[in-house]
Design a protein around this nucleic acid. Structure first.
Lengths: 327, 327
DNA sequence: GTGAAAGCGCTAACAC
DNA sequence: GTGTTAGCGCTTTCAC
């Protein structure tokens, strides 16, 4: 089943079928309909390899997913699904690259023309893949923001604004002593962009508002200790910002056992709304929007449109019962 | 940069370069070396589309990942990563299909020759994709086992054996009253193979051993109620089997508050070892092994080797401090 | 052990 | 608005 079979069936030339499919030149309404009918009748599907050979377009994008222990998998998956779904609306498929392949994976897919572009997740401040991307002339979009963004196209949530939004929210409620429970230490050590920027936004806002503000890296299994340490050392603490999805539940449990429960201890979280009752004041992480935007930007680049630039999506803080005015 | 450039550089014909790359005919050691050197010197990489057009092999496999609310994402991701990594060792890449595309996604990638085969995850007892797979003559491997396995190649953990192993372990310790806390109700309603089989194995073993055994679907937000119900209605309960990864922590917390802690209440879990201290007696879910096996089986099918069949990997129960003899 | 050349199925000039 | 045709870059017969 090839394009010439469809052409014969419809009584037109192969190129006409091709143009009906691509819409790259105008076709009379009658011809278009006849061709469409033949395509349906025969169940024709173009051969992807032949198409990519002739058109120099694979209609595939690559997605590099993170695999680190300290990356919250469900969030990564939300990005991946969003990218895949969005790509389909642009008639592209998604090739999965694991971070384990590193820069070589990028060279491989670029060199063999397996994909038209690549989306890289979990970008660090000084990411080894960035120089490779610069040298590769493969259209790319980063989800995350490295230190040097020269020539790159990046998308992310405005994490600095998210950190600031939480602090301003608490400051507006009268809190003057706040702690920030963050990502596992390793995340800061490898200088993951989003984590650094969140803290920077939080600390800047705290200075601005004259709020006492400290930082406490955390992971689910150290949550208990972090809570105990805060209760012991910070008697005046009334505000808590948590930027660590899987630690939210253990942290709240620990604080509760220590006699501190929201909203007496006002808690705001940065991340997907945890399915806890009652709901928490939170800044959502719009993975779907970020993924869709990344795909859109990549499609533009593939089509030679748009230049480099950093797109930061505005965070939205949703107040809930876990934060209240200081008493 | 094409194969003919490499051929010229090495002073051989294009076909010789092709054969050096594919190993499909014998090449003299000297020629092989010269060609290899030219390939390295020029940094040649074959064009994937051209290759797939000429050879009718894309060297890509598709992977359908589940996206359901009730599927535990980190486990699904472990499968996906294992499949991707294994595929690379067989010189294949992985195309991501979301479950949202359903049967049409399979038809699409099969019809356009985008991939040589497909691996389908999260298979249900009566799965809509199975008849499509049967009609498609696209090599496929299912991770999971549907009701009718005629003509299919399936891999999975032997969940029936896992359920039985937990019960036998508890029975060996003298427990005679056991409860099984399972997946969310929706998982059973849509008849997901692995959940049904686990329960079946558990119940059969319980009958065999004369143990009182009941089933309790659960999700993280109903864990508290499930625990309360069991404490209230089952005063003689001393054994618990949990087949619900994200509910383990809330469940144990709830039981603790009700005065029941391991190993007085002996708890065994089916799933990846939870990072809790002290560790729990558990049956591991060998996602890596299952993914690797699925890829191996698929590669064999693509090469025309091996027939249909169901491969069940033996579970391994690792005893730990959460289970103890009944007192 | 190696080379020549005929496709693989499609796209996009070019021609009308 | 439509048809003809020359590639796209590789694999694989066929021939030696």
């Amino acid at each position: 089943m090839r394009i010439s079979d469809v052409a014969k069936h419809a009584g037109v030339s192969p190129s006409t079928v091709s143009y009906v499919l691509s819409g790259k030149r105008s076709i009379s309404e009658t011809t278009r309909r006849r061709v469409r009918e033949s395509i349906d009748a025969l169940g024709y599907q173009p051969h992807a390899g032949a198409r990519s050979l002739a058109s120099r377009r694979s209609n595939v994008i690559a997605l590099v997913i993170p695999l680190r222990e300290d990356v919250h998998v469900p969030v990564a998956m939300r990005f991946a699904v969003s990218v895949t779904t969005s790509a389909r609306t642009h008639d592209h498929d998604v090739l999965l690259l694991t971070q384990g392949e590193g820069p070589d994976g990028l060279r491989r897919v670029a060199g063999s023309a397996m994909c038209d572009g690549v989306i890289v997740m979990d970008v660090e401040a000084d990411d080894a893949r960035v120089p490779v991307l610069r040298s590769l002339d493969l259209p790319s979009v980063l989800i995350g923001v490295p230190e040097d963004v020269e020539g790159l196209t990046c998308v992310d949530l405005d994490f600095a604004a998210a950190g600031a939004a939480c602090l301003h929210h608490l400051a507006d409620l009268g809190h003057t002593d706040v702690a920030f429970v963050g990502q596992p230490p390793s995340v800061y050590e490898r200088r993951t962009g989003f984590a650094e920027r969140t803290v920077a936004g939080y600390e800047a806002a705290a200075r601005e508002r004259g709020v006492r503000a400290t930082l406490h890296p955390c992971s689910p299994d150290t949550a208990r200790d972090v809570a105990a340490g805060l209760v012991r050392d910070r008697p005046d603490l009334t505000g808590l910002i948590v930027h660590n999805e899987p630690s939210v539940a253990p942290l709240l449990d620990a604080f509760q056992e220590l006699g501190r429960t929201p909203p007496e201890l006002s808690v705001a979280v940065i991340g997907p709304p945890a399915p806890v009752v009652p709901p928490l004041t939170s800044v959502d992480l719009p993975a779907e929007a970020v993924g869709a935007r990344a795909v859109q930007l990549l499609m533009d680049k593939i089509d030679g449109l748009g230049g480099p630039g950093v797109t930061l999506l505005e965070p939205r803080l949703t107040p809930a019962g876990s934060t209240a005015p200081r008493t």
